[in-house]
Amino acid sequence: MIKIFKTFGGYNEITEPTKGCWINVTRPDQLEISRLFLEFGLPKDLITDILDTDERPRIEFEDDWTLIILRIPVESNNNGVPFQTIPLGIFLSEDFTLTLCLQDNQVLPINQPSILREQYKQISDNINFVLRLFLRSGNMYLRYLKQINQMTTLIEQDLEKSIKNKELNKLLKMEKCLVFFITSIKANEIVLAKLRNSRKVITEINEDLLEDAFIENKQALEMAQIYSDIQSGMMDAFASVISNNLNVVMKQLTLISIILMIPTLVVSIFGMNVPNGMENLSWALPAIISGSLILASAGVILFRKRQWF
């Protein structure tokens, strides 16, 4: 989907590009990709790079255009992993600024183009716009990290009583999300450092915004690393908890088998086809059953006193 706006704020949507416009492209089909190449003049290799899920963040400067690729967090249902990161490409030229992403995202949602409307008067140039995207990306990382932490807390509650690996696998997928986040945030930080060292960021406003983006990015990285360290230790601990819970269940089953074996043994002895002196007594059967129950109850009491139950 391609949407063209007269300004970065997304106030006025137009049908044809004009000088200084912002073009937002998400989930392009083959016709739209051809339009990006033929009408907007994007090199084919750059389009392919941006639409590659594994493309790393980088910045390229040419005479008439600049390309910036950062990785942004998105929600995902891929194999039970709730979040992942994908590249967002920003193509800057003298005539327009184009953002390209291979799927829907919350950094630049295609159906909500007004995310920068309150700030559009403050956006002085396209570099300022790029820095605000880095800042918004950092905010999204922090938001999703809080959601991961909440999901992890719910999984912990299930793990305390679990004897299966289902919850442990969920925790492993949370750890996988954190690895994605840490890798992408570190790569974004390198791009921000290159922007700082380039001659493009020259205004005082951009320098302040760049510093804010650095701080937000660093905070997201520290949170992701803290959560990752906690989960790494937690997985080892809960693996032992699951093993211990299974041992407790096996112990209880063993004790139950012992208790049931007592009346079985008594009945088996008196049920043997040999004389035992009680063949002709009318109260023999109730006495044997009562004795079996008394011995079984005594076994239960003994086990409880030893805190085996």
Rank of each mutant, 00 (worst) to 15 (best):
A239W: 13
L98Y: 02
F270V: 07
I115S: 11
I155R: 01
S268M: 10
E175G: 04
F40D: 01
L171A: 12
I230F: 14
L192K: 01
M278S: 14
M223H: 01
E207T: 11
F238T: 02
V130A: 12
L116A: 11
E60C: 11
P73C: 00
D29L: 11
Q307F: 08
L142D: 13
N77E: 15
N149E: 13
V81G: 00
K218M: 13
E156Y: 15
P28A: 06
D158K: 12
G41A: 02
L192D: 14
S297C: 02
I182H: 02
G20A: 00
D52L: 10
P109N: 08
V248N: 14
I59L: 15
R27A: 10
P87T: 08
L145I: 05
F180G: 00
P87C: 08
Q225I: 15
Q119L: 12
L195G: 04
D45G: 05
N126T: 07
K218H: 11
Q122W: 07
I301H: 10
F61M: 03
G291N: 03
K3Y: 09
T264K: 02
I50F: 04
N126M: 08
Q112G: 04
F61C: 09
I202C: 07
S162M: 09
G271P: 02
S257F: 04
Q106F: 14
I258H: 09
I127G: 03
N206L: 12
M250I: 08
F270R: 08
D95S: 15
L70F: 10
F5E: 07
R35C: 02
M235G: 01
E75F: 02
S124H: 04
L131N: 06
D229E: 12
S93W: 05
I14E: 06
L108I: 09
E204S: 14
Q30D: 15
E160Y: 12
P73Q: 00
E175L: 13
A224H: 13
G299Q: 02
N105C: 09
F270S: 06
A220D: 05
A287Y: 13
M235T: 07
K251P: 01
M250A: 01
K161P: 04
L36G: 08
L171T: 14
F303C: 15
R117W: 08
E39N: 12
L131S: 00
R35V: 12
S297P: 02
E55W: 01
R143T: 07
M151A: 06
N197E: 07
S243I: 08
K170M: 06
P28D: 04
K173W: 01
S257D: 11
A187G: 08
